[in-house]
C-alpha cells in the first residue's frame, strides 16, 4: 500500500496552488442524458426475446395491414372448382407445398385433379369455397387485430380514467367505484357476449368489441387505481399541490406519465387476450359472421376439414399462436425494461 514517496519524480511548479475558479467543474455529470423513453428502448433492445417478438409483431402488422397492396387476391372471391386445394408454391417440390395430397394412401396431384392450369398456385391453398387461404388469413388477421386494438383502446380509456378518479378521490367515491368494478368483473365475458348477441341482431365487430370492452377495462382500472393511490402521496405530487396546481393538471402532468409504464405493460397483455377472446367467440359461432373472416372463423372453418386437409386449420392457428406469444413475450420484456430496479 504505502508506496515509497521518494521515487516520485516531481517537476518544479508542481506544488503551485491551483486556481479553484478556473479548476475543474465539481458538479459535472459525465453520462449522456437519456429521456425515459430512450432508456426503456435501450433496455428493451438488449432483451433478445422481447426484441425478436417486437420485430415479429411489426412484420405481422405490416403483412396484415399492407399485405393486400402486394398480394392482390380477393379474400372473398369464391372459385368452387378450385375448392380445397392444398398449398402449392412455384418451383418447390416438397410434400405439403407441391399441391399434392394423400387420398386413401395414394399421392394425388390435387391441382391436376381440379383441372387447374400450370400457372395456378395457391401459396397456402384454398378453403372449401375455393377462396385463397393466404389472402383470407391476412384479412382475418387484420380483422382480429382491429378488433383487439379498438377494444383495448376503449378498455384503456375507460380503465385509466376510472382508475385515476377512483384512486385520486379516495374515500366514499373510491369505495363506490370499487364496488362497480367488483360487480362487473364477476360477470363472465361469455354471458355478456350472449347478451350482446341477442341485443345486436347480427353479431359482428361492433358486438365483439363492446363485449370485450365492457368486461375488460376493470383490470386496467384496478391497476391504475393501485398505482394512483401510491403516487398521490409521493412528495412530487404534494409539491405540485403546494404550488397550487389543479387536480386535472396534476393528473395530466404528474400522474399519467408515471402511470404510463403500468398502462403500456397492461396493454401488452390486454391485446392478446382480446385477440384470443375474439377468436374463441368466432370459433363457437357468436362472433364475426361471414363473409367477414377473423382468425377465429378461419380456425373454425378449417377444423371441419381437419382430418383430410389439416393445413386449413394449422395455418390460421399458427398465426394466432405466434401473435399471442409475441405479445406476451414483448409484454414481459416491457415489464423488465420499465422496471427502474433493472437499471443499466
Amino acid at each position: 500500500m504505502a508506496d515509497n514517496p521518494k521515487d516520485i519524480a516531481i517537476k518544479p511548479g508542481d506544488f503551485e496552488p491551483l486556481d479553484q475558479q478556473a479548476g475543474p467543474d465539481n458538479e459535472r455529470i459525465a453520462a449522456p442524458s437519456l429521456t425515459f423513453g430512450q432508456d426503456v428502448w435501450r433496455r428493451l433492445k438488449s432483451n433478445k426475446t422481447a426484441f425478436t417478438s417486437f420485430i415479429i409483431l411489426v412484420l405481422m402488422f405490416l403483412v396484415a395491414f399492407g399485405g393486400q397492396a402486394v398480394y392482390h387476391h380477393d379474400p372473398n372471391a369464391q372459385q368452387p372448382k378450385y375448392a380445397n386445394l392444398p398449398p402449392k408454391i412455384k418451383g418447390v417440390d416438397l410434400y405439403g407445398f407441391n399441391g399434392h395430397l394423400k387420398q386413401s394412401g395414394k399421392d394425388v396431384d390435387a391441382y391436376a385433379a381440379a383441372g387447374a392450369g400450370k400457372d395456378v398456385h395457391y401459396v397456402l391453398g384454398t378453403d372449401y369455397l375455393g377462396r385463397d387461404l393466404l389472402a383470407r388469413i391476412m384479412y382475418g388477421t387484420r380483422i382480429s387485430l382491429e378488433i383487439a386494438l379498438i377494444a383495448t383502446l376503449i378498455d384503456l380509456t375507460i380503465g385509466v380514467g376510472f382508475g385515476i378518479i377512483s384512486g385520486w378521490k379516495g374515500g366514499r367515491v373510491d369505495l363506490f367505484m370499487q364496488r362497480v368494478i367488483e360487480i362487473l368483473s364477476s360477470i363472465p365475458q361469455l354471458v355478456v357476449m350472449v347478451l350482446m348477441a341477442t341485443a345486436f341482431t347480427k353479431t359482428g365487430m361492433a358486438s365483439i368489441i363492446a363485449a370485450i370492452a365492457i368486461t375488460g377495462w376493470t383490470t386496467m382500472a384496478r391497476l391504475t387505481r393501485a398505482q394512483t393511490l401510491q403516487l398521490k402521496n409521493q412528495d412530487f405530487i404534494l409539491a405540485a399541490r403546494t404550488l397550487g396546481e389543479s387536480a386535472p393538471k396534476i393528473a395530466w402532468k404528474h400522474l399519467l406519465p408515471n402511470l404510463s409504464s403500468v398502462i403500456i405493460i397492461q396493454t401488452m397483455f390486454t391485446i392478446p387476450s382480446a385477440i384470443f377472446f375474439e377468436a374463441f367467440l368466432s370459433y363457437i359461432g357468436i362472433g364475426i359472421s361471414s363473409p367477414q373472416a377473423s382468425l377465429g372463423t378461419l380456425i373454425s372453418d378449417g377444423q371441419k376439414n381437419f382430418q383430410f386437409l389439416p393445413y386449413q386449420m394449422w395455418y390460421p392457428a399458427i398465426v394466432l399462436i405466434v401473435l399471442m406469444l409475441a405479445f406476451n413475450l414483448l409484454g414481459d420484456g416491457m415489464r423488465d425494461a420499465f422496471d427502474p430496479k433493472s437499471k443499466r
Partner: peptide, 26 residues
Amino acid sequence: AARSDYAMKIDTEKEPPFFKVSDTHY
C-alpha cells in the same frame, strides 16, 4: 482536486501515493 481548497498543480496530473504518518496511519 476539484473540491479541495488546497489543490496544487500536481493534483490535476498525478495521483498521490500513500504517505506514512505513523505506523498505523497513512
